[in-house]
Amino acid sequence: MSAEVLVFDILGAIAVLAAAGVVLARNPVHSALALVVSFVNVAAIYVILRAEFLAAAQIIVYTGAILVLVLFVIMLVDPDNLPEFHGGRPVQRLLALILGLALLGEVMAAILTRTIVGQPGPWSPQAVAAVGGNTQALGRVLYSGYVLPIQVTAVLLLAATIGALVLARPDTPRVRALVRDTATISLAHPRGSEMANGVEPALPALAAGQLKLEAGERTLVMAKSGDDFLDQPVWGERHQS
């Protein structure tokens, strides 16, 4: 048993135990802590696997950002009601355990009987060292063969950011319903220098309740369709014929 295997066994055991702790802990904060431990150990295992860049990325992204966010949300959601909702669902627990064991059995069978097909790739440790280390080697692979996926990932991240903004936006259903139900046509909002004429805009006579002054100073005339005002001269338009 080499020292490498010993180190791996220790790290792996801690990672698995911590992972079990994530599932078993009653308090979500403790779960998160256990997950941190698991992630850090997995990152250490990455270093054994000569993936130093990914180890750093793992810590920065997972532990440094995602889990901090999770903790943030845990504390924000309901700090007084954090303990887990226990009890109930005995059937599901049993089913889940059976399924988990079955999958474990299947996967272990696959792992233990596996054979390697195909040739080893070009990035032997010597080749990696020749270009200056794991980071440089990964960069070469990434920016030569995976430029499009990188850009797609960038777009994905942007989309996720926008999605998060939308989700986090406080929604006021009343306003949305109002906008949905009535199209708004602003006839009395001259834009630009037409105001200089000093002529009052010709507004159609309004039924009671049609005029909403909700959107600030600007007068909104609610109309069911543009046809209602088609024959109305627009602001500043010549009256012909």
Partner: peptide
């Protein structure tokens, strides 16, 4: 989620 897990087990099997 249970259904997904079941499906995974079956497909892998």
């Amino acid at each position: 989620a249970l259904a997904i897990a079941l499906g995974t087990v079956i497909i892998v099997g």
